[in-house]
Design a protein around this nucleic acid. Structure first.
Length: 296
DNA sequence: AACGCGGGGCA
DNA sequence: TGCCCAGCGTT
């Protein structure tokens, strides 16, 4: 993740730069990070800080919460770390640290549990500067109190319930994950010379705003091709099957049969291979299958 | 309260 | 290959 972050920051080093960039470019630099609606939120938030707050983040929790994409955790993190206010920032790391420390066995997915942890942490802001305390707890969770924790190295081990009772692998308690349902698609790499036809996804839903190869539900390339023909405003010829791509999201799995299609004409919806707009991982992989064929 | 939202890292 | 990781907005 770090290289992505570095690239993003190198291109958009401050809110002004981000606010003045086009959304398409923000999306391109977000490519590979996932949760593409966050790209929209971070761009909108930058524009608001730029226009409404004269390029300075507002210090109050309420004004921070009003920015798109800024929830309770992020507002707390900014307020305490950047503005030194006694506002807890409870993320997954902090939930893990605190539930182990006190032996909390209610599920950390419960709103009640998170509220209890938040109010507990709030009582810790007394002597220490808020920006240091907040970062110390988060860092403990990120480096020491991880899934398989390094309890011998933990400065809190003498006070820790989970350590004392050998229950670090039982706490935190979280709901088990459901297995993701499998969805089948035929994905078309539609080419004209070395350009690829791409459509832009809608503003909401899966892979929002990302560009995508046309894709039809089903397992049969020939049936899917008939659907594609009806959907596309130019003549196409069915090419060879390039292979499969499987892709796992947090809530579903895709199995894509990737098929090459030759377009009879080009348009401004065709993008040259060396300058593609932002795509999801699965479709980048699909296009690479065609590139490999091209190399041979 | 429940659901939808991605892709990288690691065993 | 399979499993793990999180916080926000919407419904």
């Amino acid at each position: 993740m770090l290289p992505y972050y570095a690239r993003f920051i190198a291109r958009f080093p401050d809110v002004t730069t981000l606010a003045e960039a086009s959304f398409d470019e923000v999306l391109t630099h977000w490519q590979g990070l996932g949760y593409y609606r966050r790209a929209k939120h971070v761009h909108e938030a930058a524009k608001r800080v730029h226009e409404l707050h004269h390029d300075q983040f507002p210090p109050s929790i309420d004004a921070l919460r009003a920015l798109p994409g800024v929830g309770e955790y992020t507002a707390g993190a900014i307020a305490s770390i950047a503005f030194d206010q006694a506002e807890p920032a409870v993320d997954g790391n902090v939930l893990r640290v605190v539930s182990r420390l006190y032996g909390i066995t209610e599920s950390i997915a419960e709103a009640k549990t998170k509220a209890a942890v938040t109010s507990r942490v709030k009582t810790w802001y007394g002597d220490a500067p808020p920006h240091e305390l907040t970062q110390a707890i988060m860092e403990l969770g990120a480096l020491i109190c991880v899934r398989k924790p390094s309890c011998e190295a933990c400065p809190l081990n003498r006070h820790c319930f989970a350590y004392a009772h050998g229950k670090t692998d039982m706490i935190p308690v979280k709901p088990s994950r459901m297995k993701q349902p499998l969805e089948h698609y035929v994905t078309f790499v539609v080419t004209h010379n070395e350009s690829i036809y791409l459509e832009q996804n809608p503003d909401d839903g899966l892979l929002a705003n990302l560009y995508a190869c046309p894709q039809v539900e089903g397992k049969n390339p020939h049936d899917a091709f008939e659907t594609l023909k009806a959907r596309i405003p130019f003549s196409v010829t069915l090419g060879e099957t390039l292979g499969d791509v499987t892709h796992v999201f947090s809530h579903k799995r895709w199995k894509l049969i990737v098929v090459h299609v030759l377009a009879g004409e080009s348009s401004d919806m065709f993008y040259p291979l060396e300058d593609l707009p932002a795509l999801g991982k699965a479709h980048r992989t699909a296009i690479e299958l065609w590139e490999k064929k091209l190399m041979q």
